[in-house]
Design a binder for these strands. Structure first.
Length: 247
DNA sequence: AAAACCTCCAACCGCCAAGCG
DNA sequence: TCGCTTGGCGGTTGGAGGTTT
């Protein structure tokens, strides 16, 4: 491996000591986050850069929230997971004080076993209850600084389903909603008046969840993903469809 | 009392994409 | 263009602590 974590036999692993925590914290408070490959040297730690980064992000940062997830946090997590799938860092980014590891652990602890249980049931011959939806997944895990992400729109097609498209695909802007992007090409008066009832609700959810995402510069992709029973709201495969517009 | 089992979560692992020379 | 380094991610594991038998 080229990440420098497995190349040395003398690097410390396992639980962090209070002294190591203090060193790491002091180092980052002094020099700031980033340049993780230098952190072990600056802090005088016999740990790899990944270990230092993880310890800081998941434990030492000042704004980390501890203790049980509250009901609204769980609700938010479920809604975000429905939209994003296992994009723990994105989900955590929208739950103040919680880390990706927290969210992932909570999900695996509280929700994953149920899916597992269902698979076991299927194995034993019971009819499958598995449901799949299209989950919108941002494509880029790391955002390119040079990527142009503006030309995205969300709109409804002629049978009322939500779709997204690029400006190149759009000839009639009468039914465009600026749900996903802060593109200067999309105006508020483009919001479709036809979005009502349930579809409106879906739009609200998508806007609420993805407006920030795309402002940060991430394209969208669609993947099939099993729905957990805990999902608080639902929309079908046909309700939301997106296609990649960046190519 | 103690062995077995379970739960939870911190930490590790392997991979990917961006950046850079 | 290519190969290396780095940052970052999701999946998995190991062990401490709690619970059950």
């Amino acid at each position: 491996m080229s990440d420098g974590c497995n190349t040395s036999l003398v690097l410390r692993k396992g639980a962090w000591t209070a002294q190591e925590d203090t060193r790491l914290k002091n180092c980052i408070e002094k020099f700031g986050e980033g340049k993780w490959h230098l952190v072990p040297f600056k802090a005088g730690l016999n740990r790899c850069r990944k270990s230092c980064r993880l310890r800081w992000l998941n434990y030492l940062r000042s704004n980390i929230k501890r203790g049980e997830f509250e009901e609204d946090e769980v609700n938010l997590m479920l809604r975000l997971h429905k939209l994003l799938g296992n994009r723990w860092s994105l989900i955590a980014g929208r739950i103040p004080g919680r880390t990706a590891n927290d969210v992932k652990n909570y999900w695996n602890t509280h929700f994953k076993p149920r899916a597992k249980h269902r698979k076991e049931q299927v194995k034993e011959g019971e009819p499958s209850k598995e449901v799949f939806v299209k989950t919108i997944k941002p494509q880029a895990r790391t955002v390119s600084k040079t990527l142009n992400l503006y030309p995205h729109y969300i709109m409804t097609n002629d049978i009322g389903n939500l779709i997204t498209s690029s400006k190149d695909d759009i000839h009639d802007t009468s039914d465009i909603s600026p749900m996903l992007v802060s593109s200067p090409l999309v105006r508020s008066d483009m919001i479709s008046e036809n979005l009502e009832g349930r579809r409106k609700q879906i739009v609200d959810e998508v806007e609420w969840s993805f407006g920030a995402l795309l402002e940060e510069g991430e394209g969208l992709d669609v993947v099939e993903q099993e729905v957990d029973y805990n999902s608080l709201f639902d929309f079908s495969v046909d309700d939301v469809a997106t296609w990649d517009l960046l190519n």
